[in-house]
């Protein structure tokens, strides 16, 4: 990621926090609160689908799906994040070796 984009990311993330503590904060809260609260659920779900099933512009079912499914089970079992990552990577690598 280029430095101009990094600076944009830093400025944007700080700007949103600053907007919240400013006088405008209360207004944002009332008008956009429900939508903003639901954004992470939608965005995470869309990103998960793209990262798991997309390959060069088409949908594919490959080793990633098995790894992510195993990771999801780890999440459901309340495993720490580092274990979720380890499980997902190990299962994906194992499926790649087998197939």
């Amino acid at each position: 990621m280029s430095w101009p984009l990094m600076i944009g990311l830093v400025a944007g993330c700080y700007g949103l926090k600053a907007l919240g503590v400013s006088k405008l904060g209360g207004r944002v809260d009332r008008r956009l609160g429900p939508a903003v609260t639901l954004l992470p659920a939608a965005l995470f779900a869309a990103l998960i689908m793209i990262m798991t099933f997309e390959d060069a512009g088409t949908l594919t079912l490959d080793a990633r799906a098995a790894g992510v499914a195993a990771g999801a089970v780890a999440v459901w079992r309340k495993a720490p994040l580092i274990l979720v990552v380890a499980v997902a990577m190990a299962v994906t690598a194992a499926v790649r070796i087998v197939t």
Binding site: P40, A41, A46, L47, I48, T52, V68, A70, G71, V75
Partner: peptide, 30 residues
């Protein structure tokens, strides 16, 4: 299998957001 690590991390981050009906609807629709 690094390419599967990121969606798995996002599953962990998604989990607390699907405790409400509205959150589940947003996730499924998206």
């Amino acid at each position: 299998g690094l390419d599967a690590a990121f969606p798995a991390i996002l599953v962990a981050l998604l989990a607390p957001h699907v405790r409400t009906a509205a959150g589940r609807t947003a996730a499924l629709a998206a």
